[in-house]
Amino acid sequence: MRALRSMGPIFLVLAVLLVLIAAANPFFLEPAGFLAFVKRAAPLVILAAGQYFVIVSGEFDLSVGSLVTVQVVVAARLIDGEESATWWVLALLIVIGLLVGLVNGVITTGLRVPSFITTLGMMLVLSGAVFLWTGGAPRGALSETFRMFGRKDLGAVPWSVLILLVMGGAAIMLMRSDFGKRLMATGDNERAAGLSGVRVNRTRILAFVISGLAAAVAGILLGGFAGVSAQVGQGLEFQAITAVVLGGVALGGGRGSVVAAMAGALTLEALFTLLNLYGISGALEYAVQGVIIIAAVAAGAVRLPFKRVARA
């Protein structure tokens, strides 16, 4: 009950949006219609879960959008339509994701570069590298097996929904583990956490690695969903951050639940779907995200004093 109350509001918003979508599009109420929605939301939900780990530890990860683009472009070029190349390329993509997260984490903690700058730099490095390597436009093609994860179903359930359930479940377990508690403590008060024996740097590096892994999986799902595109990851980092903030997670770290962050991503996707259903799309999506970020953070600032009182 307590847990439900602490992450209640986002679920209320989500429920309202889902009802509105169902009102405009009755097909949404059928299992297939709802699963199609979850399938479309899965990459963003996974990204938001990854971003949550970084944000709750008090940092940002702006590199996930371009990392997703890298994943898709690299996969297309290396697979080049060959089914047999699928599995080692999938493994390579996961390694690239982990590695980028590791570099982000090590630079942020070891060199004490603010993560905003580290990951902004990483975003530019990755986009530049993709541009250089492809000469501006992606080459090659993804194999059917690669695309299966983002596009096809296992029985009646899309693969991406299954992968989302596994990733989401793992994220919840992680936050319940000792690592989750150390991560939360690090974001809440780095010094206090350090003094009480938390290896702050190691904890944060791991958070970045998780975010990189999430980006790798999201890239695999997105590439599968719609095929090769050099714009696939554009703006995803801000969508993920918006989703996390929308879930009531405090920027600056230390507060919020991963379930609410994932619900925030579903809410954002529901909002986009609704806008699309009512024929408002395109540029307005950015405006909506902007309003949400500002409104949610402003609301968070207002509640701070109450929280302190409650804790005392």
């Binding site: 602490s6 992450m7 209640g8 509001p9 986002i10 209320l12 918003v13 309202v16 949006l17 509105l20 929308l246 009531g248 909002l271 609704l274 806008l275 009512y278 024929g279 408002i280 307005l284 909506v288 309003v291 949400i292 409104a295 949610a296 402003a298 609301a299 968070g300 207002v302 509640r303 109450f306 929280k307």
Partner: peptide
Amino acid sequence: MNRSIAALVAGASALLLAAGCASDK
């Protein structure tokens, strides 16, 4: 506290949607 986020977001989305409905009908 958390409710205020919900209120703001819901309010903002309602406004946007209302605008959308009006222009789209």
